[in-house]
Simulated assay, not measured.
Amino acid sequence: MAEIEKITRQKEWYQLHLTSGEKLLVSEDQLVRYRLLKGQEVTPELLAEIKKSGAQEVGLQLAYHYLSYQLRSEKEVVKFLREKEVPNSTIKEIIWRLKELNLIDDRTFAESFVRTQANVGDKGPQVVAQKLKEKGVAPEVITEALLQYPLEQQISVAQHVAQRFLKRSSQDSFKVRQQKVKVHLAQKGFNQEVSQSALANLAPEKDDEQEAELLERLTAQAFHRYRNLPQDKRRQKVKETLYRKGFPYDELASLVDNFQEEE
């Protein structure tokens, strides 16, 4: 039969060192409840009971701490406890207790998550729904939670996302910027209806002077890139490059031909 060799303090926990070489992490409440003292004999039955109640108390405290920062889904809490090596049977008891205390509720979590994304995020409903799915939230709960993200707010967020993207893509032609921003909004989780409304509200207009300056600059860069090619091949590659960037062929062909004559 093992005895308690010593008891050491580890922050809010205590560790029992047994003569058998085993170490147990227990709470202060357990020390008092089981009257655990140095030199005390620990029967196999008492050891099993301490392990079971200890794992539950430790796991519950870990869960409290994890939930103190923000709301979590049930799946997230289960994953966290498993990573902390809490036994599966104990995790079930902990989850039941947390639900009883209303500390875990996937419906409340999902609604809060959607509201946060709608108010401070840059994701559309489709991406938000996918994230909730990954967090283990049931499909019907996700559908209801998305009601917290009304159409008007989706358009507003999409418009903000589009504005930021258009500023970053200033090195593209107007046509390419329009195409890219639509793809970007789709990747962010906004549907076609929302994207079209957002772009319509922005009403971006083509700046002919800016477009001409950009075309000249990109033409010079392309000629430099293909400088080692024969002249005819070089001119053709430059035209292909500029056309892929969304510039009208008539405009770019004229510029390339004139640029070539100046070489």
Results as ranks from 00 to 15, higher is better:
46 L>A: 09
251 E>R: 13
4 I>K: 04
31 L>M: 04
45 E>T: 05
185 L>G: 05
43 T>D: 12
97 R>I: 05
212 A>R: 07
181 V>S: 01
170 S>G: 02
22 E>Y: 10
239 K>C: 11
74 E>Y: 03
141 V>C: 01
227 R>H: 12
185 L>Y: 02
69 Y>L: 12
120 V>A: 08
173 S>L: 04
135 K>W: 01
169 S>E: 15
208 D>Q: 13
104 I>N: 01
73 S>E: 04
237 K>T: 11
118 A>L: 09
243 Y>G: 11
145 A>C: 09
153 Q>K: 10
197 S>L: 14
116 T>V: 08
221 Q>Y: 11
129 A>F: 01
23 K>N: 14
78 V>S: 07
136 G>R: 02
47 L>E: 11
187 Q>V: 02
155 I>K: 00
123 K>W: 13
65 H>C: 05
145 A>F: 05
51 K>D: 07
96 W>Q: 13
184 H>L: 03
224 H>K: 15
78 V>I: 15
142 I>Y: 06
121 G>P: 04
62 L>R: 09
197 S>V: 04
182 K>I: 10
162 A>W: 12
64 Y>P: 04
241 T>I: 06
75 K>F: 08
137 V>P: 03
70 Q>L: 13
167 K>S: 01
230 P>F: 01
115 R>T: 14
113 F>W: 04
194 V>P: 00
